[in-house]
Design a binder for these strands. Structure first.
Lengths: 244, 244
DNA sequence: TCAAAAGTGTTGACATTACACCCATGT
DNA sequence: ACATGGGTGTAATGTCAACACTTTTGA
């Protein structure tokens, strides 16, 4: 077991989509009085851990994800590094740190990553105790600066999704246009016109219809699509317009 | 004098515009054989330094800038954190580190910032020895992973400039549309149509014409403009289109 | 008077928006 | 048979790209 770098951690904001809402995976943090065993506070944090000596930070982020969710080889991207002094300055965070990690510096820099998964692949009640999904627009009390961290991750995701087809990481392999539209609406917090959305999607050559329809739904079954990374990379070209 | 955090540094990619090209400020790094005093190698690095204990990383970046250029209160934004193991793996970087900073870990995480200044405000031959401007499209040999760092900073700058009017940080307070166009062309590495560019600029309410013309130029003198941050913030609104 | 950059409008192609009706399925 | 979401086209508007000539100054 290698030693931790005392003032460097990674935090992963794991986004999941359940075809209704955009969710974030959070871990319960419960501080008990060491003597009376009373609950001092309960709140939640994103998944994080200290970086090990000699460990590349990207690997540290993968390690955290793997360890806390069992997931491997999923979309993971660094978005921002949080290094203010105030990030641990709440009273409860101070207590938590002193009681649980007395050897850790009170100035921890944290490299923020975000990750995209299909919510259905990670069940909230799995063996991963104390870890569950919360809708991004209805978050519980959060520890440290994790509220800001989630907001920033979401902005980053929005900007990225405007430029690149990463939304498919949040969808099952086979999906319908409606599911895709719902996803975009959740991420951007906006409504889109159904016909215009479909028009746009039909111009994306890398969203490919299958010879397959939805089954078991009480309405006209929808066409099923897959995303082809391959076609995407072969057909993409840079746009050079500048705006604002 | 506070202690450094041994494996955490900040690096600032300082961009400057001299109305001809986009430049980066680099420091000469010269390694001499400790016995024979022969030059072992010469190359350049961006401006960086270790973070101090208890110092917010944004402050560390400002400190580096102030110390190395004398500049204060200039545009400064974090863009990416570099934390691979290979960033110091070149033989020359290893030698440099062993000879100059033997106490430093060989796994240093570096938070990358970029900064925007008007090149004319920082003269390359100032008292800031060993620091000079290089065109981004004609860089010398660079130490560590600083080539990748500059490329990434430039991409980041491009994306930011598409969204927000930060180009004015690279221009003098009063500027002409041609200077502005040249800047955009340098940053994006593209040519724009003069009339279309002017049309676009004239829609930007925050680019305000002065009652003033260029002087001493051997052609029709150009209208002079200023940028109003104020007007920008009052008139901006989010765009919600998603592309690709 | 010449060289050099400033300034100015129109057109066609394309993308974006707004909008209403019929279809296939399960219950 | 009905409720539910699936699927489709057009017209109006806005945005982008391409393009050539006249003006003002200093040398």
């Amino acid at each position: 077991m290698k030693a931790y770098i005392p003032n460097l951690s990674v935090d992963c904001v794991v986004f999941g989509f359940d075809h209704e809402r955009l969710n974030v995976m959070l871990t319960k943090r419960e501080l008990l009085d060491p003597i009376t065993k009373d609950v001092i506070f309960i709140d939640y944090t994103v998944l994080g851990h200290h970086v090990l000596e000699g460990e590349p930070i990207d690997d540290a982020a993968s390690r955290v994800l793997k360890h806390r969710t069992g997931l491997d080889h999923i979309y993971l991207e660094q978005f921002y590094t949080f290094g203010g002094l105030d990030r641990m300055s709440n009273e409860k965070d101070q207590m938590w740190t002193k009681l649980k990690y007395p050897m850790i510096s009170d100035h921890v820099i944290s490299v923020g990553y975000y990750s995209l998964v299909d919510s259905f692949e990670v069940k909230p009640d799995d063996k991963h105790e104390n870890t569950q999904w919360f809708p991004v627009d209805d978050l519980p009390a959060l520890g440290f600066d994790h509220k800001e961290m989630i907001e920033r991750a979401l902005e980053f995701l929005q900007r990225k999704l405007r430029r690149e087809p990463i939304g498919f990481e949040l969808l099952p392999e086979k999906f319908t246009i409606s599911q895709m539209q719902k996803l975009y609406e959740c991420v951007f917090g906006a409504k889109f016109d159904r016909r215009n959305f479909r028009k746009k999607v039909s111009q994306m050559k890398y969203v490919i219809p299958l010879d397959e329809k939805q089954k078991g739904v009480a309405h006209k079954p929808a066409q099923v699509f897959i995303f082809s990374k391959d076609v995407y990379y072969r057909t993409k070209k840079e746009k050079l317009d500048f705006s604002v």
